[in-house]
Design a protein around this nucleic acid. Sequence first.
RNA 1: GGGCGGCUAGCUCAGCUGGGAGAGCGCCAGCUUGACAUGCUGGAGGUCGGGGGUUCGAAACCCUCGCCGCCCACCA
Length: 859
Amino acid sequence: MDEARPITATDMPKAFDPQAIEAGWYARWEQDGLFVADATSDKPSFAMCFPPPNITGELHLGHALQTAVYDTIARYKRMKGFEVLFLPGYDHAAIATQNVIEKQLAKEGTSKEQIGREAFNARVEQWYEQTGATIINQLRLLGASMDWTRLRFTMDSRYYRSVMTAFVAFYEKGWIYRAPRIVNWCPHDRSAISDLEIEWQEHQDTLYFIKYPIEGGGDVTIATVRPETMLADTGVAVNPQDKRYKSIVGKTAVLPLVGRKLPIVADDAVEMEFGTGALKVTPGHDALDYEIGQRHSLELVNGMQVDGSMDAPGLPYDGMPGLEARAAIVEALKKQGLIVKEEPYTHEVGHCDRCHAVIEPLVSEQWWLRMEEMRDNAVEASSSGKVRWHPEKYEREYLDWLHGLHDWNIGRQLWLGHRVPVYRCPNGHVTVSVERPEQCAECDQTELEQDPDVLDTWFSSGLWPFATLGWPDQTEDLEAFYPTDVNCTAREIIRLWVSRMIMTGLEFMGEAPFSDEVIHSVVQAADGRRMSKSLGTGVDPRDLLSKYGADALRAWATSVAMSTQDVRFDESRVEGYRRFANKLWNATRLVLNSPGEQTAQAPGFIERQEHLEDRWILARLANAAEAISNGIEQFEFQESINAGYAFAWNELCDWYLEAIKDRLRDGDPAAQDVAYFCLDNLFQLLHPMMPFVTEELWSRLPGERGYVMQSGWPELEGRFVDPDAEEEFGQVIKIVEEVRGHRTAAGAPPRGGSIVLDGSVSETVAGLAAKLAHVDLVEEMGSGGVPLAVVSGRVAFPTGTGDARRDKERKRLQADLERTEERLSNPDFRDKAPAEVVANLEARAEELREALERLTAGQ
RNA sequence: GGGCGGCUAGCUCAGCUGGGAGAGCGCCAGCUUGACAUGCUGGAGGUCGGGGGUUCGAAACCCUCGCCGCCCACCA
């Protein structure tokens, strides 16, 4: 034992000020290397690669919530004795970042085309630096215990090499091919995008009914919302079952304005109920039409430029923007009397989820990745339980999507991103290589031109869990930390990201990249709208941090992260946790300020004491510890924060500290021991969720102390089990609450009065109850006072009687008793309910009868 | 057109395998109680969306209807 040290003096102000301590602790943690993972450690490893935020701007509240979840797990696992790797990074987010910078350029009155590639790249670099720094700073403010020595960026040179390696590996397997297909074309970005990058918006449009003449007489009327695409029509289709059109199948229609001959074909894909049941087929600009065209060998005409304007040489519409052409074409058709009808029509139109331009489906030559084998392996990994989903339902959603998976368009026609490592020589040979090749693989040409396309951002981020660890090199990190353990995201990127990580992880590493996938809730604005900067509904996490502190924000985040529905942001709940931190602060202040020479004790020291309240609070502490551990283990963080809050405030502060105040004042070492033990353990238990305040307070407790995160996790299971103490202290609480009720009803002052309790409660219970209820425990009080219901006894105050309350209480008890007896009198209940349930109810009825008797007898 | 989730106190949400309806904030009343007024004490407030069903017993399980939200889908 260390020498005695006085702990009466403290320098703690009355109120907890998060700002005063947070930065200091973070710097110390980092300086002392608490976040740095050791790949050579003997401890069991636990790894998480933080989902790299897009380097498009500042972090929002959703990121803060996600960070809180991750960091809670990371700190908990460190305390449990794992060698934890919590790896940070960010994502270049090619298309998104390009759009951000293009918007900036537009504001400055210029464009990327005007400034050129080189200047554009410089802007990008500058942006990376600035925004990367902002993101890192925000993560630090949140207390994220990330290993900054391993910070990764999807565009850093090592990561670039991983991406190239993956491409070449896929290419060599024959899974990557180039082919023209119908794709989603963004005319603003002038790039293809995948199905997953489309956002659908409702549009009010017009459905035009257009008459197409048929060779040899007659006509057929089709319906379309996009008349401008008719310039690229190459057929007309009807349903084979459709009796109305049986006679025209096989004939040829003539395309108005153009004069092209259109074979009339029969295809099951045509809906008879829609429009007229006849469909104009435009294989070059509609996905369904493309398929029909393939089936019937229809001609493929491209009617649009990469910027969305019309490509119709020889026609007056050539070069017109799409909507302008639509108007002109409708006008021309009207003149010819070919517009039969116009109807208002509401439907969903695809937009680019980054620049919001309307997507034009068109046929384009693209890089494709075959997915069959990876998909099958991912499905197999699921059925053999390699990845556990929380909540489970998301696994089905993911599997449903996997089952319908088709080849992935991995090419993008952007300025920003990982260039496809495909090189062509003047002789037309193709060389595919991780590093830029010196010369052609097939001839001696050295002037090689690299393919202009870049890769889909998700191609690179899909490699995250192993590319960050050094793959394709067999690094120590990869050896020690792959597969990782937990991944946590919002559900919106399950398909885009989670699925790709699982597939590529299985492909390149032979193992799923993590064992648990946790899907957290989405934070909405207070009014239920989406939180977004452009709507003005966003909340900056830094504002909340400065108002309430990181611990409060994190505690709130853990309390809502696993909600089954999206959560409306409620600032008052964050404020509630700030008050909680303040409560912890003041509870500690109370105990630290207790007088007396106290032996500086080792953390975790406890000598079992015999006071009822000591036994009770230790039993409750063990109970809370179990709930908190379970909550984190099972990814039900609300259980953890709720249990910690309830124990700290409603048991420790409300009852225990009140019960031992006089003992603390007297310098009773037993009371101090137990109080310190509770605080010590409580701060450890809350540390994963509220790291700053717990570190600060824990460090102020007596004894030599390092950091909470290195102090181990409280293992209290099986310790302090004490049903008798819980039962007896429960009596104390009931008596005190009843006395307080009478006091209020009587309008008596907060203190004073007397209580008499007969032998049905122990002296200990009687003494504690009297102390906490601020009444004198007396032997005898004659006929004065009012009878108690919970135990046999009477209480009296200097003023008032409290009879009103007694009547009310009697009515309540009476009603309760009647309900209980009714249930008990049901023979079916006695027959069929478990004996324990019946016994409990009988005991309750007995209690109620006794309580009523006491009230009545005492009149 | 399919699928999923939600509907619990004025607001935001807990309530995990069916056995006495909870928290925070807000509201009312009272307290400068030797840690905390960022506090303490007492209190009001709920047909657990509606209706059926299963069960001795349903907020919880089943069916159905109604709103709200999300996802998927090749009706042009």
